[in-house]
Design a protein around this nucleic acid. Structure first.
Lengths: 337, 337
DNA sequence: CTGTTAGCGCTTTCAG
DNA sequence: CTGAAAGCGCTAACAG
């Protein structure tokens, strides 16, 4: 490809003049500008982002670490991150954490290798300590859907506990007492918080949830199916089930469908949901909304702030970094009469 | 961050020695190696991919243009592309086409700016001519799910026509005669091919599909719902409906659920599917499988081949670039008795 | 086996 | 308003 040198020669000017024109720095004689622009057009010149990065030590690249690519969750995240980045003409580098600590470390290393201006981590395996240590480095990063003590100002968080409380309270308010819960993998903090929210809401209503009223899934569809089976075998008297992910809800509904247990006349179903998938089930199920899209948006904004002023935190106060749940009521649950 | 110069100074050797050790070129006195490795470790040194790119004029970056991020389709694509790229230590740059020609052009421009080693296009708006012209440039690229005359050796394709034929024939074989079709946006080539496959299969069975037996959707859920309504209002006698995307199928099922039209006892449902979403519906619906995952994998392989030998096409013959449909039979359709 | 010297394509003082 | 020159961090001949 043509280089700036080629353009300069063709236009009969110095490279720095071309550079200035490209970057719009200073003023130029109009014919100089014309000559340069013409040369660029003729050569189909495009400045090398790479060379520019090296010279300016700013790459305009932003890294995004995700745990997996499937599911609408990730898509929603990408969507928002990209949209925001596009506007600022930045490049998005995505890498996957391979579901393990070494994978996530490697990901960060790659961001470093590229000298990304900053990165966004949806990390699940890096330890708090490791993250805190990373925060010492100059390269700014933010965490999405994770809270690390001491790094609060870089965390975009969601109140999973309150989310569960909210939806379970909704069920309780409708007169339900026998409410089962399909949780995510309890070794994961957020999944644990969701489960605890359920338990807390139940206890607040004077109901002690029996261990057999809770089944652990892996957030996937199949596990929802299995958990439903387990739950209903142990507790045929359940009048409602709360599932902690939309995928598991799909499995749950499948099970109910196969057993000809009618929703919502025989049992109510409510769910966690991030991408409004619950509206595509039949019947459409009520859910607590996990606003991953908005959170991603906030993450980019936060990061942009950190990148702009490396150490200060001016104006970040205005930024919303903590998100609270909201209810989306639909038709798969109904009052106990 | 520490640079190669810092490492060299600390180790008391020349930069090129460090460079060679990093890249494992040649042999070294063991104490030289040790000194260098120690210096690198102490400084926490990581070579700059950017500087390296500039020096070698190879960036190890691969671009991926997608039309949108939502839906499992895209996730499946990312998954495979990343996995493959990770193994070769390459970086993935994703950009979105913004659903318009200018957006897709801009995307390619950005790949150029970064001097990506190559890119993968899931393009819908760039014209055949434009693509052919791009092919003149040195930067290799491949097309996924698109066929462009003259660029056959860069296209990873799927037989959409045959896919529709296959699933409709399945329905016909079961005795169905009144089969409706919910198609994608007919201004899109692939959507049109799917519709034509349906028509061809019907005609081959001696049935002329009436215009009112076909409804156009936009591949989204809502449109599936609307199309179902439209179809069944005009043709209450339909015994089966073929929906050209899993999302539309979801809408279709929702409609049937609301109208209390039982599947499969009152009507059979079959669908197009790429990410096995149809197995998460209840009842699970039979589908023709659109193997986007495998195709993505093939795309990366193809691209890797092109990047390795810029002009030649050795060994590409072994590569599978064309994919045929396969049936995944489940329970939402049944024979006419 | 290792050092010297250019140079990748751009930006950025510093002059003029 | 424009040119000259140095430098970003690395690699790649070419010597030795």
């Amino acid at each position: 490809m043509a280089s700036i040198k080629d353009v300069a020669e063709r236009a009969g000017v110095n490279r720095s003049t071309v550079s200035r024109i490209i970057n719009g720095e200073g003023k130029f004689r109009s014919d100089t500008r014309r000559k340069v622009e013409q040369a660029m057009a003729e050569l189909n010149y495009r400045p090398s982002a790479i060379a520019r990065s090296l010279a300016t030590s700013s790459t305009n690249m932003v890294g995004l670490l995700v745990t997996y690519y499937t599911g609408g969750f990730f898509g929603a995240m990408m969507e928002k991150v990209q949209a925001e980045l596009d506007e600022h003409k930045k490049f998005l580098i995505t890498v996957q954490g391979h579901h393990c600590i070494e994978g996530e470390r490697e990901a960060v290393r790659r961001f470093d290798d590229l000298r990304c201006d900053g990165f966004i981590l949806n990390s699940r395996h890096l330890s708090d300590d490791e993250l805190r240590e990373m925060a010492q480095s100059a390269r700014p990063f933010v965490l999405i859907d994770r809270v690390v003590e001491g790094l609060e100002d870089r965390c975009i968080t969601f109140n999973h506990f309150a989310a569960s409380e909210l939806i379970v309270e909704h069920l309780l308010a409708q007169g339900h007492q026998h409410i089962g819960c399909i949780s995510g993998p309890i070794h994961r903090t957020n999944a644990r918080n969701r489960l605890r929210g359920y338990q807390a809401a139940m206890r607040a209503a004077g109901i002690e949830p029996k261990p057999t009223m809770m089944a652990e899934g892996d957030y996937g569809r199949e596990s929802g199916y299995a958990a439903a089976k387990q739950l209903l075998s142990a507790h045929p008297d359940l009048t409602a089930i709360y599932s902690c992910s939309e995928e598991m809800t799909s499995g749950l509904l499948q099970y109910l469908y196969e057993r000809k247990i009618e929703v919502p006349s025989q049992i109510s179903v409510v769910s966690y949901d991030s991408v409004d998938l619950c509206s595509s089930f039949y019947p459409q199920v009520s859910a607590v909304h996990f606003p991953i899209g908005e959170m991603s948006h906030a993450a980019v904004k936060l990061l942009a702030g950190l990148m702009a002023r490396p150490s200060a935190e001016t104006a970040l106060a205005e930024l919303k970094t903590h998100f609270e749940p909201s209810l989306k009521l639909r038709r798969a649950d109904q009052p106990i009469v």
